[in-house]
Amino acid sequence: MDAFYASIEQRDNPELRGKPVAVGSAAKRGVVAAASYEARAFGVRSAMPSATALRKCPELLFVPPRFDVYRAVSNEIREIFHAYTPLVEPLSLDEGYLDVTENLRGIPTASGTAAEIRARILEQTGLTASAGVSYNKFLAKLASDQKKPNGQFVVTPNQGPGFVEGLPVERFHGVGPVTAEKMRALGIHIGTDLKRQTLAFLEEHFGKSGAWCYGIARGEDNRAVVANRERKSSGSETTFSDDLFAATDIEAGICAMADDVWAWCEKTATYGHTVTVKVKYADFRLITRSRTVSMPVTTQAKLRELSVALVRTVYPVTVGIRLVGVSVSKLASVDQTIPQLELELLYEE
């Protein structure tokens, strides 16, 4: 989807159309969750501090996020996807992979299928979508950014290796900023540079990722589209307007995040064996503390208790805390839980 959150806000509020819009908060420590294309023209990007965004674009209009609306629209779009193929692998609320090799409409080409899907999304939601069409996930992902917004780009099997060769490595899906910086230090700037390296060289410098880098430099990616991918964790975090030092304030924040996570657990009837607390200090140092129990955490009180106990391991606080988060992982649905004696603190990190 094109600037999904911001586009929904512009769709629902005509006064925002054609104007630079950011979904998020303009507060001192606010962050841009999404930016309209009008805002992006000024250099405003998602995950950018709001203060920085306002310096780049003083006319920027902030609107609070409405995740319930975004989820509802996302579900509507996924229903459209499933009218064409059962092989849908969501990546987020606004993005997903579709394998349309044998689509339900019998459309002979993937590009024709993508065009029809995009037209139906526009008709039903009033929103535009862009599509990348290719013979594997890696290339389809790259292609999806080529003609944004409201565009479509095809990379055929004959074009794949050459398409990759000219791209900067930071464009490669799966190559993050740290890996890209390491590649540049090794003289690897574009796909051609990466393709020149041997598998042994890449494994030496990038470990298990070496084989992946070797393949994508040649346009190769054998991953299948996996429908109904199992979720591995759920969490919530918040950034405070002022740094926290007092234990009562910190623990209140932790309990609020634990309650957010618990709301998801109750809604989905899914519970975690592992509770993790994240703490980010004013100097941006980040630490986590985790505890695993033998039985899933199936009460709100227990989730709060474990979360507070974990955050207390970071006391005393000598540097202010700017962010806390709570997450649960090692998930199990309610019908997978079997009552038994609880053995706590199997490990801690």
Rank of each mutant, 00 (worst) to 15 (best):
E203H: 06
E203M: 03
E204F: 03
E204V: 01
E204W: 06
H205V: 08
H205M: 11
H205Y: 14
H205K: 14
F206M: 02
F206E: 09
G207A: 12
G207Q: 05
K208E: 10
K208N: 12
S209K: 15
S209Y: 11
G210I: 09
W212K: 05
C213F: 15
C213N: 08
C213S: 08
G215I: 01
G215D: 13
G215R: 15
I216T: 04
I216N: 09
R218Q: 07
R218M: 05
R218K: 06
R218Y: 03
R218E: 02
R218V: 04
G219S: 03
E220M: 13
E220Y: 07
E220A: 10
E220T: 14
E220C: 03
D221L: 12
D221A: 09
N222P: 02
R223F: 08
R223G: 08
R223V: 11
R223L: 13
A224K: 14
A224L: 13
V225R: 13
V225E: 03
V226A: 12
V226W: 12
V226Y: 11
N228L: 12
N228D: 15
E230I: 12
E230F: 10
R231F: 09
R231Q: 12
R231W: 05
R231Y: 08
K232Q: 13
K232A: 11
S233Y: 00
S233E: 01
S233G: 12
G235K: 08
G235D: 02
G235L: 10
G235I: 12
S236G: 09
S236T: 07
S236E: 05
S236W: 07
E237P: 03
E237W: 05
T238I: 13
T238L: 06
T238G: 03
T238C: 05
T238K: 12
T239C: 05
T239L: 06
T239Y: 07
F240L: 02
F240I: 00
F240N: 00
F240E: 00
F240Q: 01
S241Y: 05
S241H: 06
D242L: 14
D242M: 09
D243A: 07
D243R: 09
D243V: 07
L244A: 15
L244D: 06
L244E: 04
F245N: 01
F245V: 08
F245H: 11
F245E: 00
A247G: 11
T248M: 02
T248Q: 10
T248K: 14
T248G: 04
D249A: 12
I250A: 00
I250L: 11
E251M: 11
E251S: 06
A252F: 05
G253L: 08
G253I: 06
G253E: 03
G253M: 06
I254H: 02
C255K: 15
A256H: 14
M257S: 08
A258L: 01
D260N: 15
D260K: 14
V261A: 10
V261K: 00
V261S: 02
W262D: 01
W262S: 02
A263Q: 15
A263D: 06
W264F: 09
